Structures are given as structure tokens and as C-alpha cells.
Computed example of a mutant assay.
Amino acid sequence: MNRLKLILFALNHASARAVDRAGADWCGGDTRGPRSQAHDELASQALHALLPKRRR
């Protein structure tokens, strides 16, 4: 169940990032540029949590 929640969380933030990135391209990036970067970082962290941990 946790994996499903992480996948849905990552997809949600990836789509929000796309919307904010498009808004930054159209209207200027004062607010939406940093917001899209924050969504990108959250999606990236969720996807990294899904990857299996490497053993050394």
C-alpha cells in the first residue's frame, strides 16, 4: 500500500509541476517557477523512496 501511495504522490506532483511550469512559461516565473521546482523535488524524493536500497 505504501508503494501505491508513493506512486500516486509522485504522479500528482509531476502533473502539478507541469501545470506550474506551463504557467511560468506563459505568465512569468515569479511564483510558478519556484513552485514547479518544489513539485519536481517532491516527486523526485517520492520516486527515490520507491527504489530498492543498495547493499554495499
Rank of each mutant, 00 (worst) to 15 (best):
A10C: 05
D20G: 04
L47D: 03
H48T: 14
K5E: 11
A16Y: 04
R17S: 02
S36L: 00
L51M: 12
L47W: 01
D40E: 14
E41D: 14
H39G: 01
A49W: 09
T31D: 08
L8E: 15
R3F: 01
C27I: 12
L6C: 05
L47R: 02
K53L: 11
C27L: 11
S15T: 12
L42A: 09
M1T: 09
A38E: 05
L8S: 13
A43Y: 00
K5R: 11
S36D: 01
F9T: 10
S36Y: 00
D25A: 15
Q37N: 09
A49Y: 13
K53M: 11
S44I: 07
L51G: 07
A38H: 05
A10S: 13
G28M: 04
R21V: 06
L51A: 14
H39D: 03
E41G: 13
Q37V: 08
D40P: 03
D25P: 01
G28W: 02
R35N: 06
R56A: 12
R3A: 06
S15G: 07
A24V: 09
R56L: 13
D40V: 05
D30T: 10
H39M: 00
Q45I: 09
H48C: 09
A46V: 07
A18I: 06
A46L: 04
P34K: 10
A46I: 05
A43M: 01
P52I: 11
G23E: 06
A24F: 01
G23Q: 04
A10R: 02
L42F: 04
T31M: 03
R32H: 09
R32T: 13
P34I: 08
L51S: 12
L6Y: 08
K53A: 14
N12K: 11
H39F: 00
G23M: 02
L47N: 03
R55N: 12
G29F: 00
T31H: 06
A18W: 02
D20F: 00
P52R: 10
L8A: 15
L50S: 11
S15V: 04
D40R: 12
M1D: 10
R35Y: 04
L47Y: 02
H13V: 00
A18V: 04
F9L: 07
L11P: 05
G28V: 07
